[in-house]
């Protein structure tokens, strides 16, 4: 059977948008394979999200519910996902913290190959090829997976979120297999969630990122600027490491990868690791006092200047423009 299984990411009783990117991949893969795609949802009670998942045009929505699946833990989730994926050609989820943590574990259980952070789906006949970034995005490898099930995580910014089709896919309940010994040695303690009223970094149309140069004025300067643009706020590693902002704002090779329509790099020099996380943005604007900073090599528009002067001016003038 050449069908595709999408692993849904559900958090706080909601379907995360990452799921919709994986569905986009699945639609393409199913079309290339001449098969269909299904969606798998795990949790202690996923009834609240079934309607949304069933509307995404899947052949089936597979559901595994158990008290042990209330909080995500790879040790409990991997056996369920592996059992469900066994009859599919491809298992896909988005390369979020969830997908990156879980999929390799599932792949090991299935004795399957795993392609991480895939940005493009290609094919040769009915055999799939996966393009994925390596060396901080300075090279791309095109690979094939030689195992009965092919396990793939996809980069969210490379696959636009799938729209609902208005379908109402049938729901099929799965038995939850017993977890292994490893599961008895791990316990979910708590999630210290960062409160964020802004758009999700990985989904925003506009991202404004700040670097070390902003110092303690990181939020003071970026908040009003982001407000006027309705933008998400990102950061360089240096800004996060110095404690000027929350670590979950980090954009880069090992942080979040974004590709918004408009990206502002403010006081960011443009280390290779940062570029890896934002180089695919449509329009890049760099503001930096060092005219030789590497960020200017990828920026469409570069403004050499003192950000402590430029940013307030830009914010004020943007607001005037929006209000006009």
């Amino acid at each position: 059977m050449a069908n595709v299984l999408v692993l849904a990411e559900i958090s706080g009783g909601k379907v995360k948008k990452t799921t919709h990117s994986a569905v986009t991949f699945a639609r393409k893969a199913a079309a290339l394979l001449g098969g269909s795609y299904s969606i798998l949802a795990l949790g202690s009670d996923v009834s609240a999200v079934l309607g949304e998942l069933a509307a995404l045009g899947a052949d089936k929505v597979l559901v595994a519910e158990a008290p042990t699946l209330e909080h995500y833990l790879a040790e409990h989730y991997a056996p369920v996902v592996a059992a469900a994926a066994g009859s599919f050609r491809v298992l896909v989820a988005t390369a979020s913290a969830f997908g990156k943590d879980l999929l390799p574990r599932v792949a090991a259980r299935l004795d399957a190959g795993y392609a991480a952070d895939v940005t493009e789906l290609l094919s040769e006949g009915t055999s799939l090829r996966y393009k994925r970034p390596m060396f901080a995005g300075n090279a791309f490898g095109i690979c094939r997976i030689e195992s009965a099930v092919e396990v793939v995580s996809v980069r969210q910014s490379a696959f636009t979120a799938a729209e609902p089709t208005g379908s109402s896919s049938p729901v099929e309940r799965l038995a939850v297999p017993a977890a292994g010994a490893g599961a008895s040695r791990i316990e979910w303690v708590n999630l210290e969630q960062v409160k964020n009223e802004r758009p999700e970094l990985t989904e925003a149309r506009v991202v404004v990122s700040g670097g070390r140069a902003l110092k303690e004025q990181f939020y003071e300067l970026l908040n009003p600027f982001a407000d006027v643009l309705g933008a998400a706020i990102g950061a360089s590693r240096a800004a996060c490491d110095n404690g000027y902002c929350a670590p979950d704002l980090q954009v880069g090779q090992t942080g979040k990868v974004v590709a918004p329509a408009l990206y502002f790099a403010v006081g960011i020099s443009g280390a290779i690791q940062h570029l890896a996380g934002m180089k695919s943005s449509k329009i890049i604007v760099a503001i930096n006092k060092d005219g030789d900073a590497p960020i200017f090599q990828v920026a469409d528009y570069g403004l050499v200047g003192d950000l402590f002067k430029v940013l307030p001016e830009l914010t004020t003038k943007l607001r005037a423009l929006k209000d006009a």
Binding site: D111, A112, G113, Y114, A115, R129, K131, P133, G137, N138, A139, F140, G141, I142, C143, R144, I145, E146, S147, K279, I284, G291, F296, Q297, V298, A299, D300, Y301, G302, L303, V304
Partner: peptide
Amino acid sequence: KVTYVSFEAPPKRKAGVK
């Protein structure tokens, strides 16, 4: 189980303006 068929350089961004 994962075999690389080929490799590519990333698309180059055209140089922007100051």
